[in-house]
């Protein structure tokens, strides 16, 4: 706009003032900076294996508050799901079965993060698949943003040292797939992401 100020207003042969030139280039740089920010956001891929996993707190549907920071030393499986998501249903039973396998030992924690969902439908879903591990809504999608998920279902496994050990997009095909990864981590191996 400011170029035009000068373009139009100055019919005389006065030079364009320096401040106008500086302003024009500043605006240009600001615009490019903004676009760069947008580009970086859109290009940000999934979290990489081995980096410290983002910390979050989850308020479950039963009203408990789970803070990931308090769970250090345990293996944490974070599963993003939604009741409107068909593929999520494919893995729901497998996840619950795996949870029951580890529940007693206490060194493995499962957390379900419910992405953009209505509460009544979510509760109905949990009931339908008889899910017993802690589940809670992802308020304002803040956890999903932290993990930069690209859809549901997505699953992340955090190792005892607090770093990300495993990431999966799409549903687990069987309970064996989950067990292989979790058991591998319990034995001290770092599972590879797929």
């Amino acid at each position: 706009m400011d170029q035009t100020v000068e373009a139009a207003a100055q019919q005389t042969s006065r030079r364009l003032p320096t401040w106008a030139m500086v302003l024009a280039f500043t605006l240009l740089v600001a615009f490019l900076g903004l676009v760069y920010f947008g580009l970086r956001n859109s290009m940000a891929g999934p979290l990489s294996i081995g980096q410290p996993a983002p910390k979050f707190t989850l308020q479950t549907f039963d009203g408990q508050v789970v803070d990931v920071r308090d769970l250090e030393g345990k293996i944490i499986l974070v599963n993003f799901w939604a009741s409107w998501c068909k593929p999520c249903e494919d893995e729901a039973a497998a996840l619950e079965e795996a949870w029951r396998r580890y529940q007693a030992d206490g060194d493995v924690v499962f957390l379900g993060v419910d992405y953009v969902d209505t509460e009544s439908e979510a509760r109905a879903y949990l009931e339908k698949f008889n899910i017993t591990y802690p589940n809670g809504p992802d308020l304002k999608s803040s956890i999903s943003d932290l993990y930069n998920i690209s859809g549901v279902p997505e699953t992340y496994i955090i190792g005892p040292d607090g770093t990300l050990k495993y990431a999966k997009k799409g549903p687990f095909l069987s309970i064996n797939e989950i067990i292989m990864v979790v058991d591998g981590l319990r034995q001290g191996n770092t599972g590879a992401g797929s």
Binding site: Q3, E6, A7, Q11, S13, R15, L16, M21, A24, F25, L28, F31, L32
Partner: peptide
């Protein structure tokens, strides 16, 4: 291209009088 165009325009600014 943005920087180049803007630079050119400012360079020729005085020649483009009404």
């Amino acid at each position: 291209t943005l920087a180049g165009s803007l630079g050119l325009l400012l360079w020729r600014w005085n020649d483009l009088r009404s």
